[in-house]
Design a protein around this nucleic acid. Structure first.
Lengths: 118, 118
DNA sequence: CGGCATCCTTGGAGATACTG
DNA sequence: CAGTATCTCCAAGGATGCCG
């Protein structure tokens, strides 16, 4: 008979605290940009400014998904948006300095893929 | 009246082909390792071999999720598993050369996080 | 052109319980 | 200890339509 209450299968609160206090910020970085569409979109914006539909074609995301991803990235200061309201309207997206700072990540991913994929 | 059938909202087949033939393999890399748990687990294994429950505590993943992520990583040749069947049983996980080759990615993510998070 | 609103499907993932 | 088996829930995301 245990003197402690039974532990749930997943991490306990104290585990989570330990885990949050963990050494590196890879976990934090992954939490902020570590989703498929965010990585793909940010990578696509590294080189140059792009419009909404350009991103849609190059990434393959639906307009619904793309607009949500871009809004989220903008909220977190990773991309900037510039709108031209004259008809036909145009919307240009660029990476901020914060977003641009991820380029070493993409270079590392690119090199890894070149070596280990196909 | 369009001479072409109406295009759906998302990318067309030809778009997808263009996209797959795209320059860089960041997209491929993201497809293989670009999910939260895979990144977190691989990062946790970069330094040294770990056992199942060690990973469970350090990552915060449930045993269900962790076992599935590890199996998937093993299937793709990113981690190796060594089992000791003597009681109490033990299961040790390590990164393969392919998984170890991702360390520049994690270093880049760590540095980015150090600069741009909190 | 650049989205937003809506519906709907799917997979990711936690909780819980059980086994060798 | 190291998982597996279910059940369940929720967010991601595609399809479609509409609008300034």
């Amino acid at each position: 008979m245990p003197t402690q209450p039974p532990e749930p299968d997943s991490a306990t609160d104290s585990d989570i605290e330990l885990h949050n206090a963990d050494v590196c910020n890879v976990v934090g970085a992954v939490a902020e940009v570590g989703s498929k569409w965010k990585l793909v979109v940010l990578n696509d914006l590294q080189d140059d400014e792009k419009r909404f539909n350009e991103l849609k074609r190059s990434t393959g995301a639906s307009s619904y998904t793309l607009s949500r991803v871009l809004a989220d990235l903008e909220d977190h200061g990773l991309v900037d948006n510039r709108k031209e309201l004259e008809s036909p309207v145009a919307s240009y997206y660029t990476v901020t300095e914060k977003g641009r700072a991820l380029s070493p990540v993409f270079e590392a991913l690119d090199e890894w893929g070149a070596t280990w994929l196909d």
